[in-house]
Design a protein around this nucleic acid. Structure first.
Lengths: 219, 219
DNA sequence: ATTAATTTTTAGACAAATCTAAAAAAAAGA
DNA sequence: TCTTTTTTTTAGATTTGTCTAAAAATTAAT
């Protein structure tokens, strides 16, 4: 079955809101989609008729299992395109979201399957988020952004979400490379910066932006 | 300036019809777009207001110079994506048109510029049609499909539009390779097949489909 | 437990792109 | 030239997705 771009955007955003809370409400979806609550209500009715949504008036809503499958497919396309844009076309990771939002609506099964193969079946997008496979299964990702690591943990750098010379210069300065072991000392809530210790070097503080761009795994 | 998908499709199809005749008429454009003449008239008015079209009621129409620039940009995107689909994703050349029709509407300048670089600035798409550069300039293509070569000419094979094992097997059988010299003896209008002579081998007949997939240059 | 505030939905309108049916203009034929 | 045919345009309706303003339901507060 095929869906309009508007429908796909609603489905995708409901999916993302569900990651944070089981039930989604009209206002937050309207905010997410930069639209008005009345428009959301209209679309919810349409999605319910197509069996993509469990929805009761005034009670909130969630994706049906059918809706969930559709959503995961959109997420898959989005993240594959993001990976493509960064690794093949040389975009910086923070520039690809808007373009992938357009590309994700080109819904040809064979295209996505071949793109996946061309990219060598990547497990995560350039932001470190997992890419579901053709059956909708999310790979278990051990890698996570350093901004999400709990304090006092030791981690090993697995990848860097940004290929720009600017960040590479900075990482060099911190003596951080792929494979480097890092200890997380403390997170400062004021600006999200983190004190870390790299090898035998003196402890230092990295900004939240840098932390978000360093992907690591435990142990 | 940004245009809707519908507008872009009208512009592109007017462009293509203009390659055959200077002025375009409502019925033929309606046929091309698989829509009704009344719908075409409606859209023509809108395109005229946006200065994309020279249009006088009942008199036919043509793209303005602004409309032409827009059209060439769409063609550029379409052909770059076709090239990508065939050379990078491994699609067969006859399967890519529909997908490229969708991808061409993703209109991010930087995306197309980077895609072009990634593909190494290809001169022609997999059908042998020229790809305009970023300034809208069409490269002069010496390569053309063998289906378009005049009789009695000698040509040299420069590329093959289809990478499938099926056609490669057939070309092998005809002793045709990149660089092979071929003499065009005669074209049969009944089915578009062509009698050719390859090197010292006996003359043989290739189907129109095969001819369309062999790209050659003169001399 | 009422009232007040918030959230959600309805009602009715609008823009884009399409359609059908009928009218108007242009082209073709006798 | 005057009729007939074809092409093109208008008029009015429809669908999708959106909006504003007002009504209805829910939640929060006194």
């Amino acid at each position: 079955m095929n869906f309009s771009i508007a429908e796909e955007n609603y489905i995708k955003n409901i999916y993302h809101l569900q990651q944070q809370s089981e039930l989604v409400n009209t206002n937050s979806l309207a905010y997410e989609l930069q639209t008005k609550p009345a428009s959301v209500t209209d679309m919810l009715k349409k999605l319910q008729i197509k069996n993509l949504l469990d929805y009761e008036k005034y009670k909130g809503f969630r994706l049906s299992s059918k809706g969930n499958k559709v959503a995961i497919n959109i997420v898959r396309r989005h993240r594959l395109w993001e990976f493509f844009l960064v690794t093949k076309l040389g975009f910086e990771w923070d520039k690809v979201h808007a373009i992938a939002e357009e590309l994700e609506h080109v819904s040809n099964q064979e295209l996505i399957q071949k793109l996946d193969r061309f990219l060598n079946h990547p497990q995560t997008d350039p932001h470190g988020d997992p890419i579901p496979d053709g059956n909708g299964k999310m790979p278990v990702i051990h890698q996570l952004s350093m901004a999400d690591v709990v304090e006092k943990k030791k981690v090993i750098v697995s990848s860097v979400g940004n290929q720009s010379p600017a960040i590479l210069e900075l990482l060099n300065h911190y003596h951080i490379n792929i494979g480097t072991e890092i200890k997380i000392n403390q997170r400062f809530s004021f600006d999200g910066s983190i004190e870390i210790k790299v090898g035998k070097y003196a402890a230092c503080i990295i900004s939240e932006l840098v932390a978000k761009n360093i992907f690591v795994y435990h142990e």
